[in-house]
Design a protein around this nucleic acid. Structure first.
Length: 550
DNA sequence: TTCCTTAAACACG
DNA sequence: CGTGTTTAAGGAA
């Protein structure tokens, strides 16, 4: 039924269109990277094939056609065709599974979060196979599959997004459970890895119709804990709403935790199970954050978040972009904006990119997170600074934690909720704060460079999680190695050196690596390019990139 | 067997 | 209607 897709892609018309390359990254992406991401399968596929995207498409096309019709068989049917090539394309679009594609999509987003619609968009834009069928109309089965994958795998987490009124954000679970299962290891080490080890109980079974407990539908916004009591950071809470609501994914691994904790009562009873909780707890331990929150924080934290609302650093983007329309996220083609052309990547995802992430310790309060996550609203939209640069070679490990902690900590306090007076006062505020406060902290940190120097701080913070610092991310600059910080530097405290930046960057990278690849297990794929690719190919997504998937 | 895709039913706003 | 969740089935490695 929904396979009407016709032949568009397959045959016909498309012939010409074929190359999406040009398509998706017309000019905008050149350096910046709209979606910082690497082409999904292109690289891989191409690599193998060696060539011609066209071929790919064609193959795909054919496959596509087939796919529609026959359920399962469709999938592979085409495969044969593909197979002929190198023998690898599993699906019409390449080797990657939906889950992988989704991951890439999310990864590619500046903030690592995307709405369902955006994910679709991404698919359409980057994966040749879907290119033709994207858009509107027939929601091909692929969309269904996307949804299915999102829900199914614990590797994806859903974050409530109320600002846009759209659907929730989908993010990658730091430790995610790769596939729907696999409890993997729980973090034994307290370093940072703990994250949530989810265990998948899998007891789901039927939901029957209603009897399902309330928790089943965690949809309820955060009614229960959204407000979690006693917000530690009570300082601000004007907007506290629901922010990330974990998706309980009942049957999935996540469910475990969520089921247990989230369902109700953030109270302390959550400790029943020795296994999971501990992990969660650790993070929150220091603060009073309710378990639930903790969890979230953790997750989020892992991904990237920022610290308290104010923590942001100065940014510059705002200048150029000026008014970024946050909500317009969809306007993919926002290139128009005054020259910014940040490409839709930005816009697509969401203009607002936060920036700094803090670790849990900061406890910045849900609100913050919320804000950030939901980002659409009052967040410091403009803040952004570094971004992940592909370059940074080594891995710095995590010394930054302190840095970041510092920032976080202090900032946290400072901040408050000024709310905006104008439109995006926050930004301003942050700026100010950033300017004044940060510098000092930074300087402090900077000097030492090592952890050793700051015992105190460290002590304060439990820091296991502190790994992530990650500052904003903005494609805009994407300065990458070339002139990256120039801009930022302006605004940033002079105290810092490039090194600092580097460190930050490192963090990013490192962090990313950790989070994304961390397990390494199955993921070797993609994003790496980002990191590894030293220079952006600009448009060339087609060639180069040799990261081989294993 | 397990992983993955596809399809579809069902709930929710 | 779009989102999300979940179950089921078939195919491939």
């Amino acid at each position: 039924m929904e396979a009407p897709e016709p032949g568009p892609e397959a045959g016909g018309g498309p012939g010409g269109s074929v190359e999406i390359d040009p398509d998706f990254e017309p000019q905008s992406r050149p350096r910046s990277c709209t979606w910082p991401l690497p082409r999904p399968e292109l690289s891989a596929a191409q690599q193998e094939a060696g060539g011609p995207a066209a071929a790919e498409e064609e193959g795909a096309g054919g496959a596509a056609a087939a796919a529609g019709p026959g359920r399962a068989e469709g999938a592979r049917g085409p495969g044969a065709a593909a197979a002929r090539k190198g023998g690898s394309r599993r699906n019409a679009w390449g080797n990657q599974s939906y889950a992988e594609l989704i991951s890439q999509a999310i990864e590619s987003a500046p903030e690592k979060r995307l709405t369902l619609a955006q994910i679709y968009e991404w698919m359409v834009r980057f994966v040749p196979y879907f290119k033709d069928k994207g858009d509107s109309n027939s929601s091909a089965g692929w969309k269904n599959s996307i949804r299915h994958n999102l829900s199914l795998h614990s590797k994806f987490i859903k974050v409530h997004n109320e600002a846009t009124g759209k659907s929730s954000w989908w993010m990658l679970n730091p430790e995610g459970g790769k596939s729907g299962k696999a409890p993997r290891r729980r973090a034994a080490s307290m370093d940072n890895s703990s994250k949530l080890a989810k265990v998948r109980g899998k007891a789901s079974k039927k939901k029957a119709s209603l009897q399902a407990a309330p928790e089943a539908t965690a949809d309820s916004p955060g009614s229960q804990f959204s407000k979690w009591p006693g917000s530690p950071s009570s300082r601000n809470n004007e907007d506290s709403d629901v922010w990330t609501s974990f998706r309980p994914r009942t049957s999935s691994n996540a469910s475990t935790i969520s089921a247990r904790l989230s369902p109700i009562m953030p109270e302390q009873d959550d400790l029943p199970d020795e296994k999971l909780l501990p992990s969660l707890v650790y993070s929150s331990a220091s603060s009073n954050v309710p378990p639930t929150v903790t969890e979230e924080l953790e997750l989020i934290d892992g991904l990237n978040l920022m610290s308290p609302s104010s923590s942001m650093l100065p940014t510059q983007q705002s200048a150029s972009g000026g008014p970024v329309q946050r909500d317009s996220s969809f306007s993919l083609r926002t290139q128009n904006s005054a020259g910014q052309a940040s490409t839709f990547g930005t816009s697509l995802f969401n203009p607002v990119d936060i920036s700094l992430q803090s670790s849990v310790n900061c406890f910045s309060g849900p609100q913050t997170l919320e804000a950030l996550l939901t980002s659409s609203s009052p967040p410091p939209s403009d803040v952004m600074m570094t971004q992940v640069d592909p370059i940074l070679p080594q891995t710095g490990s995590r010394l930054n934690s302190q840095t970041f902690l510092l920032l976080g900590g202090q900032v946290t306090q400072n901040k408050t909720s000024p709310v905006n007076a104008r439109g995006k006062p926050l930004a301003q505020q942050s700026e100010s704060i950033g300017a004044s406060a940060l510098p000092s902290m930074l300087s402090v940190v900077a000097s030492p460079q090592n952890t050793a120097s700051m015992p105190t701080l460290k002590a304060q913070v439990p820091a296991p999680t502190a790994q992530a610092v990650h500052l904003g991310t903005q494609p805009l600059l994407s300065s990458v190695s070339s002139a990256p910080f120039g801009v930022n530097q302006d605004r940033l405290p002079t105290d810092l050196d490039v090194d600092m930046y580097m460190e930050n960057l490192e963090c990013d990278v490192d962090y990313i690596i950790n989070s994304d690849l961390m397990d390494g297990e199955g993921l070797d794929f993609n994003f790496e390019p980002i990191l590894s690719t030293p220079s952006y190919p600009n448009t060339s997504q087609a060639s180069n990139h040799t990261w081989v998937p294993s």
